[in-house]
Write a protein that binds this DNA or RNA. Sequence first.
RNA 1: GGGUGCGUAGCUCAGUGGUAGAGCAUCUGCCUUUUAAGCAGAGGGUCGGUGGUUCGAGACCACCCGCGCUCACCA
Length: 498
Amino acid sequence: MNALIERRLEELTELKNKNFETYAYSFDVNNYSNDIKNNYEALEGKDVSIAGRIMALRRMGKASFAHIQDKLGKIQIYLRGDDIGPEYEAFKLMDIGDIIGVTGYVFKTKTGEISVHGRSLKLLSKSIRPIPIAKETVDEQGNKVVHDQFADKELRYRQRYVDLIVNPEVKDTFIQRSKIISEMRRYLDNLGLVEVETPILQPLYGGASARPFISHHNALDIDLYLRIADELYLKRLIVGGFDGVYEISKDFRNEGMDRTHNPEFTMMEMYVAYKDYIWMMETVENMVASICNTVYGTTKFTIEGKEIDFTPPWDRMSMVDELLKVTGLDVLKATKEELTAALKKFGGEPEKNTSKSALIDELFEASIQFKITQPTFVIDYPVELSPLAKKHRTKEGLVERFEGFVLGREICNAFSELNDPLDQRQRFEAQVKMREEGDEEAHQVDEDFLRALEYGMPPTAGLGVGIDRLVMLLANQPSIRDVILFPQMKPEKKEKAE
RNA sequence: GGGUGCGUAGCUCAGUGGUAGAGCAUCUGCCUUUUAAGCAGAGGGUCGGUGGUUCGAGACCACCCGCGCUCACCA
């Protein structure tokens, strides 16, 4: 197994013996691959200095071609022994994967490929582990065909650094992710919101229904929880007089992993005083449309083969009205037995000891949610499902809450925030009862949060957006692992030291 | 956690019980405009692991490890 590595170590030793530097300190780069290709007319015959990783090698005795890859892409270099002198001896000891710096002039080869004719060459870093390099051809239609592409998903996730080197579209996905977050931040800043940081280690976890990771503080000798949401701290800041705040950061939930769940994931939460959920719906659709336009230049996407249009306004759908239409049940008046029967009719499997509100939620998922394709706000949820949302101003038994769905998947959750401290205390108490009845994910009572509400919180609209899922949609990636650089994996078997 | 599929050379993959294979990558030789460079040759394997069945196992059986898909749980 080590034959390839041993060979490279020998080359490394040989380079050192010949007094070639093998791990350089710096190199002055003044051009990049695709910039050179895009500005050929201006650069033809001019000297450029580029640096990158050797991705292909074609040696022909005393001259060689290679492709090097930098941050923008690949470009061919041409090296002749006559031109670069003794460095050509070093070049003979270089491999695919080595990082080099090249200075030379821009030219086109016989076949018309824009290339750099090297005048000098410097090894910047010797690679001693072979990279799983793929080769490319172009078919009759002019499409790129990649041969033997590095495809092993396990290795790609575990060794993302290799994935990024050899699969350019992976890097592109993460650049898209970065741009989406940047544009979101810019949009929220322009709304006048203040970006804040609140505790990740929390003595009580709240703001969502989920099981937490538990840690321990030695000096205080107390357990602390990794947050499952930011909500209760951000609302404390609204109490404190910030009119609008947001936070973009990791939350942690100690639950199963699958295509749409990673134990740590990125959430954007925002809270804006004096606004309600109606305002928030408009803000969400406008913000997403703005991100789409800035990052992709359009609000119309093809995602998983379906045309999706993020152009505002998005559809609004009342949860209970739609359930009445689809199932014929007035879910607020229906009994648990009726709900269970309806759920079974739609192929759902009701959990034992499930509350009525949970049954309504499951019925909604089974009968309606999965069919939602275009961006849609589902509004007005049963009160039991939403212990932090404000009671609906006109509809009994409901709260002012919406979730945004695209392609059957939730991308955001928002309410008119509950600011009545007495009501909030009752809701927490109802959660305590659910916990006692076995619901591990019921909320805890947060007395300090209640105390904050007792000082008075203005009417407030709040929102949470799952960034990973938003990126999955816009970048058209099927798994959350494809939008998280280092997704959680089971521990690797210990390899023998190499 | 359940179901299901997969794990063979650095990578991508063939191999249905009888000597471990191919392409690319690597190495040697030739080659100063090649581009999946070419030509000639060579090396490279604990077939995920442990047991078992068998005269004989990469293949069959059991268990274990890891990954994918899917269901459940869960946003």
